[in-house]
Design a protein around this nucleic acid. Structure first.
Lengths: 336, 336
DNA sequence: TTTCAGTCTGTGAACGCTCCCAGAAGTAAT
DNA sequence: ATTACTTCTGGGAGCGTTCACAGACTGAAA
């Protein structure tokens, strides 16, 4: 079904060019020790026959596949919300395509998925692995490391920072930028809604916040969310109940910030007059909220591209590559 | 580099089980004509040796790859905006994983990309193709059809509706639902901002709108966007200039509707008091706008899953499969 | 006993490629 | 002429599977 009336093989090309398989193969690969005449003849024969190399046959002998897997380790709640995945996948695909490497996307939401990913990678179907938001304590990560497959991550893998290279936005400094901005606006009681504390974004953005606020970052001004919009709503509600006189809140993601805005509106607080709200990500929702969110832009596409670059370096045989941290930028809109 | 110290082959399993390659292969595949004893021995040997079948070797002989390509044909502007791709990719991945088929994502934004996709597919690296928002007049589509590779699309491929099976939301009826809602609210001068008129969403949502509005859907009440937020802003501005007394607008996507809302706010029109706004998609931005968008929910994940189902049917040898149209639902929020 | 159908198993031959080695051909130095 | 490189080419071997076929072993029917 899937295939057409017999695709030309390296044999056909060789015959058409009047040379041997070996010579065609040389032209296809290293190109060394091929006479100009033979080279030209082979090129012509390839064009004439419409020959396309069969990667399966090639992989069989080279042990290389020409593809890498992107593993999305996300719990279900977040599955369908975060618009950043599109950006990520696209940027990675594009970067890899330039090297003729294809991107296979796999989910790792439950144990069945994880098992599948492992089988795939250990089965030698991918030359490398691109981890996205891998959780700390994820057995998948350790097994992958044991397998010695080149792997990189988008965002640090907590507890494995030194074994899995990564590219990430400067979460900590980004949080500082926002905290400073809120302080500079004269806000006095500044709260924060963090991400999950087992993710780098959750931890580092809180640390950056604390860096600036110091002792003023008390426990009662901190609430945790799980990156979802809904968790932003409820975290904001808890904050308001506990500290009704807060006058600013730094929310660790735009999506949660959108939730927080909704809660504030219901509570009758004006933004930014009564309460200033700062987000993080500068994702597509940031511009659509009311008021539009003041937020921290992280260069998602660039992070993805850098991550791919690290992976490519690893594939090229680099023994070690350094993590890459990319700068963030404060985007001032109306919410703070 | 990428590989570990020699993975076991079917030979090793055969030796460990005390049978021949053939028997192991039979256990791995159809299972017919294998004695219970041999079957058990092979199963045990597989477990002991940690054997994993080499798909390259298998593909080489079977001419099947166990993977399908998702081709994202999008111009650059829209690349990074639409949050639906995440949903799409995830739903498709999940559905395919159940059949142990992996999803390869490829972009087709420019001719270089298209060329790559074609080489990939014609190179026999995929058993099927999953087209996303393929444009009419896209040479890629025709070449694919010629190649006789099983292909399905998410959303109809204009002009190729009968040759490429697809699953889609009921765009036309969805638009009717929104138009009726606006009429029922007593709106008299109802405008619309459509998508690009070379996409099914652009065409069908306008048709649905016209179905309900009839002669009232005059040229001067129609503006075209390109799905982006920005195009929504400018289209709304043009409408206001041309027809200042409009009291409702149906925007063919939430993202464009978010843009329209921004323009209306700047123009000092209150929503929904002065102008009612209806969106389409119920994507993640819909809940974050101010006021939250009344919109039409399309079951994106379900559409993706149905599309995959069609593709699987094709892969299983079905000569023909019928398109699937899934119902939409009006979600009433505050904007209309 | 012979025949036959049905089960089960092993083996050679692909699949399409790269790798490696032997050797031809050319060039330059002895 | 001989030797010694270097450049270039052809073809055998092998990568790990599946597939087709031949043959062995059953048990039942003739």
């Amino acid at each position: 079904m899937a295939t057409m009336g017999k695709r030309p093989t390296i044999h056909d090309v060789a015959a058409a060019a009047g040379v041997s398989r070996g010579t065609v193969s040389r032209v296809l690969n290293d190109d060394r020790y091929v006479s100009p005449a033979a080279h030209a003849a082979v090129r012509r024969a390839i064009a004439e026959t419409g020959y396309i190399v069969n990667r399966n046959a090639r992989s069989l002998v080279t042990q290389r596949t020409g593809s890498v897997v992107m593993v999305l380790s996300e719990p279900h709640e977040r599955l369908f919300e975060d618009p950043n995945y599109s950006v990520l996948i696209r940027a990675a695909t594009r970067r890899l395509a330039a090297r003729d490497i294809s991107l296979v996307v796999m989910l790792a939401a439950d144990d069945g998925d994880r098992e599948r990913v492992l089988r795939y990678v250990r089965g030698g179907h991918a030359d490398g692995v691109f981890l996205v938001s891998a959780h700390s304590g994820d057995a998948l990560v350790d097994t992958l490391v044991d397998t010695e497959v080149p792997a990189v991550a988008q965002g640090a893998v907590i507890g494995r920072e030194n074994v899995i290279p990564y590219a990430a936005a400067d979460d900590r400094e980004g949080a500082r930028q926002m905290a400073r901005h809120l302080v500079d606006q004269g806000r006095r009681k500044i709260a924060t809604i963090t991400g999950p504390m087992d993710t780098p974004g959750g931890i580092l953005r809180l640390e950056g916040f604390a860096d600036v606020l110091g002792r003023r970052a008390s426990k009662r001004l901190i609430e945790h969310g799980d990156w979802t919009r809904l968790s932003g709503e409820s975290a904001m509600a808890r904050l308001l109940e506990r500290t009704p006189d807060l006058d600013a809140v730094f929310v660790a993601s735009d999506l949660m910030a959108a939730g927080a805005l909704a809660t504030l509106r219901i509570a009758g607080r004006r933004v930014p007059d009564d309460v200033a709200v700062g987000g993080f990500d500068d994702s597509s929702v940031a511009a659509s909220t009311h008021p539009p969110l003041t937020t921290i832009r992280q260069p998602v596409a660039q992070v993805a591209e850098e991550t791919v670059r690290l992976l490519l370096a690893l594939l090229d045989g680099a023994a070690h590559v350094d993590p890459v941290i990319l700068p963030t930028r404060l985007i001032v809109r109306d919410s703070a």
